[in-house]
Amino acid sequence: MSEDQDKYIAEVVEKALRGDMDAINNIEDRVTRSKAKAALIKAKRLSKTAAAEAAPAEETAQTDTTLTEKSLNQKVAEALAKKFSGSIDSEDVNEYIQLNGKNWFEIAQYLKDNPDLLFDSLQCITGFDFGEGEALEVRYNLHSMTHYHAIEIRIKTDRNDPKVPSVEQVWRIGDWFERETYDMYGIVFEGHHNMTRILCPEDWEGWPLRKDYETQETYHGIIVPKVKEGWE
């Protein structure tokens, strides 16, 4: 009798948690009704603590505004995982989304055209060097002029043969930003119509912003390195 009673109480508590209080209120037996209500209160308390435990772990170093950003990043990550499976590299999407470069051009078009996201403005492309002998990374800061939200996307690539798909056809400013990243780090953007240096001269040697860059000795006969004779 008590096993059936427990199962019955569990059923009505489930219904009540979903918002349907009639099931409990219609129980004729007073004892059962009070047991059901007690079980409901306990169930509610348990779920609240579970949510409170989960929340602080995620809200570590964020301010109030990032509460909506957290859901934005989560939303974008879920949409990308559904549409382009296997492209997200890391599960932690609190501050940025780490992609692995596959289908990046299609993902960029999706981010720009999807009416909920509408990231129509590429703010900045930054190259990044983790250190000598480690990987290189490209970071994109996107922004939406209609929805006023922003997101950061990172793509890691190998140091010895860095290649990332180009997005210059999606956001036209990608053209010059990618040429600058190529000039400074040596990352080749596949599909770019004119992958040449933009800041340093065409015949410059080396990738200046890498951590292991050594300046060349002379350039067309002029001395380059840092200290002139007879200084200090």
């Binding site: 129509d120 403005s121 002029m145 036209r172 400013i173």
Partner: peptide, 17 residues
């Protein structure tokens, strides 16, 4: 064109945005 090329400031405001 202005938004796609990342133009901002008075240049963008001159185009009505």
């Amino acid at each position: 064109v202005a938004i796609s090329y990342g133009v901002s400031g008075p240049n963008l405001r001159g185009s009505g945005v």
